[in-house]
């Protein structure tokens, strides 16, 4: 039965990992707008990766500065 100590500790850790993911998701604004993405996924998109990259870099610089 002593194994329960270990099992419960692990299960709490795993669950805590998911909680951390949830906290990250809320903080990064993934729950701010739950409506638009449902439309967006239906559109065909030609992704413009270079521009995305540029913005992301700028944003990072902005938050750092």
């Amino acid at each position: 039965m002593k194994i329960l100590f270990l099992l419960i500790s692990i299960s709490i850790l795993v669950a805590g990992g998911f909680l951390a993911l949830f906290i990250w998701a809320v903080r990064s604004g993934q729950f701010d707008d739950t409506k638009t993405p449902s439309f967006r996924m239906l559109f065909e998109s030609k992704s413009e990766k270079e521009q995305e990259k540029k913005i992301n870099n700028d944003e990072e610089n902005h938050t750092r500065g």
Partner: peptide, 8 residues
């Protein structure tokens, strides 16, 4: 460069 809409 990019426009993202918040529908709600």
């Amino acid at each position: 460069i990019r426009l993202s809409l918040d529908f709600g």
